[in-house]
């Protein structure tokens, strides 16, 4: 079957983005990516992906905006409270046995999960021995993560999530209200580093004891999922932990054998000792 004109243009646009800006979206799930690019096409008032490609190549102000369509940035503090409860109850006891800890939040978006883990680790008395790496490909998201300011109207949800995750303190201890936003305490990112890293193009950068990468793999095709999980495997120390999204699994992964289920319902895996 011949590709439709739109499919040809779609692939060419991804190729143009790769060559010009070194962002590789070729391994992303097509259905979702195409949907978002169509929204972008509409937003930029372009008739076709070819027209959008022309804009992206010749107007350098377009790409940063386009990037926010290409990456999905939907997150919350303590999103899926049961996941954080499982980290607290089942993973933290293992983490306590390490004199120093490194945690990688891959695809950290605007930092919600990094701050959530920082709060959890403070509550558990592990903060001082831990470094948290929050990585993402979107510089604007990383800037927001660095700033740690979130819309005030999201705070009730975050507070409820934190409570349901087994939080031992009050979320309000960690932010102050200013300019209509909730500004999170700078001390929470004393042990956090936000940086640019692509699961599609970059390599392992540290040995870590916990990787949390939730609702990121679903945007990748199977080959790219395998690449990403391979990075997690190589990055994790022996018996390290991997947490993925509630509806993600390593079931179809090339690296499934390297992990065993640790908290099955919360999709927390442990790297086998012999890998």
């Amino acid at each position: 079957m011949l590709d439709s004109t739109e499919d040809i243009e779609f692939r060419l646009l991804l190729e143009a983005i790769l060559r010009k800006y070194h962002y590789d979206f070729r391994g992303y799930s097509t259905a979702s990516l195409k949907r978002r690019l169509r929204q972008a096409r509409e937003r930029f008032g372009c008739r076709s992906f070819s027209t959008l490609q022309d804009r992206v190549l010749h107007d350098p102000t377009v790409f940063p905006d386009l990037l926010s369509y290409l990456t999905v940035q939907v997150s919350e503090f303590f999103r899926d409270p049961d996941y954080f409860r499982a980290i607290r109850e089942h993973v933290v006891p293992y983490l306590r046995t390490y004199p120093s800890l490194k945690i990688w939040v891959a695809g950290c978006s605007a930092g919600e999960e990094v701050y959530s883990l920082a709060i959890l680790l403070r509550e558990e008395g592990l903060e001082d021995r831990t470094m948290i790496y929050g990585t993402d490909i979107n510089p604007e998201a990383l800037r927001r993560a660095e700033a740690g300011v979130y819309e005030m109207d999201r705070i009730p949800l975050f507070t409820e999530n934190h409570r349901r995750s087994g939080g031992k303190s009050s979320l309000s201890d960690y932010y102050t209200a200013a300019y209509g936003g909730a500004v999170f305490d700078k001390s929470l990112r004393r042990r956090a580093v936000f940086s640019d890293h692509s699961l599609a193009a970059d390599e392992v950068f540290a040995e870590v004891q916990l990787v949390s990468c939730r609702n990121v793999l679903i945007y990748f095709d199977r080959e790219l999922q395998d690449r990403a999980v391979g990075l997690f495997k190589d990055s994790l120390s022996r018996k390290g932990f991997l947490g993925i999204g509630g509806k993600e699994s390593l079931h179809f992964s090339l690296h499934a054998e390297a992990f065993e289920e640790f908290v099955r319902d919360e999709r927390i895996y442990q790297k086998r000792g012999d890998r």
Binding site: S29, T30, A31, S32, R35, R36, V72, V74, N215, I218, Y219, D221, G245, K247, E248
Partner: peptide, 21 residues
């Protein structure tokens, strides 16, 4: 479709989930 996720069909007729807005 699982609750709270979009369900999509890929060109190669696999399913994808998404937590987009």
């Amino acid at each position: 479709a699982p609750p709270d996720y979009h369900l999509m069909v890929e060109e190669d007729r696999r399913l994808s989930l998404s937590s987009e807005e």
